[in-house]
């Protein structure tokens, strides 16, 4: 990915592109966006689990649109107070949002969500109209 000086002058955005790619590569090393999710699928039903400890369930939001479910929320940032010293500061805080695409359209009215011990569980059934129907064959 070497660029000559002339190329860089002609297309300054190329440098930005290159930097963008570099940052993305570094950021994606953890191979997923926060929060991490596990998704189980069984025909017309999906179960999503996500580790979002320390988040007030009131501040968690689940929205459904078509076949996409979005989990978002916020974990309060602790302002550094005077006279304190941070020995470790590893916990991720702030806003987050994550979308997961399912292989079917979700029935938004039948979505159930629960939050326990820092783990969010969401159960998402497929739209009934889309579910396969069994057609009986009459013998004549």
């Amino acid at each position: 990915m070497t660029t000559t000086y002339v190329e860089r002058i002609l297309n300054p955005w190329q440098e930005f592109d290159r930097m963008d790619r570099m940052f993305n590569r570094v950021a994606r090393r953890g191979n997923c966006e926060f929060p991490a999710v596990n998704v189980w699928i069984n025909g017309g039903n999906a179960e999503i689990s996500s580790e979002v400890s320390g988040v007030d369930p009131e501040k968690l939001d689940i929205s459904v649109s078509g076949n996409i479910v979005t989990l978002s929320g916020t974990r309060p940032v602790d302002e550094k107070k005077e006279g304190e010293f941070r020995h470790r500061h590893e916990i991720r805080r702030g806003d987050f949002s994550k979308s997961v695409q399912l292989p079917f359209n979700i029935d938004a009215d039948k979505v159930h969500a629960s939050y326990k011990n820092g783990v969010l569980h969401v159960s998402l059934p497929q739209l009934e109209a889309e579910q396969p129907k069994k057609i009986e064959i009459k013998s004549e």
């Binding site: 400890s53 010293f85 020995h87 470790r88 500061h89 916990i91």
Partner: peptide, 16 residues
């Protein structure tokens, strides 16, 4: 997170 305050040290551990 390990935060040292005047009188105590607070340790928070994420264990979902």
């Amino acid at each position: 997170d390990i935060i040292e305050k005047k009188d105590y040290i607070m340790l928070l551990a994420d264990m979902p």
